[in-house]
Amino acid sequence: MTATDSATGTAPAPAPERPDRSLGQAAYAWLRRTDTGSSTFSVLVTALLLVVLFGAGTLRYENFGYPQVALNLLVDNAHLIVLAVGMTFVILTGGIDLSSGAVVALSTVIAASLLQKGWAAPLVIVLVLATGTLLGWAMGAAVHHLQLQPFIVTLAGMFLARGLCFVISEPSIPIRDDLFTGLAQNVIELPGNTYLTYGVLIALVVVAIAVYVLHRTRFGRTVYAIGGNEQSAGLMGLAVGRTKVAVYAISGFCSALGGLLFSLYILSGWSLHAIGMELDAIAAVVIGGTLLTGGSGLVVGSLLGVLVLGTIQSLISFDGGLSSWWTKITIGVLLLVFVVVQRLSTRSSR
């Protein structure tokens, strides 16, 4: 056990009042808690991995160090960040959402086909987001009320979403709506001749909101409590059922929003978009240090996880000699390392 054991002395004095800790003390307390099993430590490892990967790229390829390369990690992966945020909510409760890739495709198809028919862009956006949320809510209800396994429920959701895609439109539909193209093509100029897209801004706002919700609201803490011990959470009087349904609705919303960002990114709607994107999201969440058994992990970790995946992709595209499939292999190996380490660390702490 840890140093806290010493606190169980037989003759404990009343705990000293420490109303205001100095910054140094707080930092020390934080560091002391950040041991190898904590989620902050996992995030630090992921951050370190990101720095090392990026550093290696900078040393190896001469153009890799340009600031815009780093920013492009965000630009190219804005949709995946949003997806990973939704996935984090679900995985924190110990569930999984296999439908998110299909919901992305569905969102692009709905958006593209409605815009083609001349619907107003804001209305289309609302409709897409509502569809995703509704689908997620239905899956959450099935998981909670029918006690079906999340894996099976979201698998069925994936089939349904893809099926709907094909019904709406099989061929790819280009998006020519002014609002969409405007959002896609206009960039936010940053100093140093660099830029970000509006999609990145949206993704970062989503991350910020998720951090706030998970850490500063009762709902968020209930999400963690369910992942820690669902039965206990129930006995502690928390709203387990409502929260479980809600995380799938959130994941559905995030998938739909991710779909909109993805349609901005490639300006088309197609039923075969985003095949396997749910796996990328899951991989990012795991690499970001979230335990697949639930209860431990940070949204910031998932953000870093997406950036790690993005960096691997850029490294491989910068190196003309390495072929694209190395991306998949590397991601698989990283996944393996993180999963095995997680397994070993949870085994030893029990």
């Binding site: 963690y224 820690g228 502690m236």
Partner: peptide, 27 residues
């Protein structure tokens, strides 16, 4: 023990009854 081992001592004590300030949990 029917608590959540993944959360802090504080959270396990106040979970579900957290003091709030302007809507968010007052840590």
């Amino acid at each position: 023990v029917n608590l959540c081992p993944n959360l802090t001592v504080t959270e396990n004590v106040v979970l579900g009854r957290e003091p709030r300030k302007r809507g968010s949990i007052d840590r």
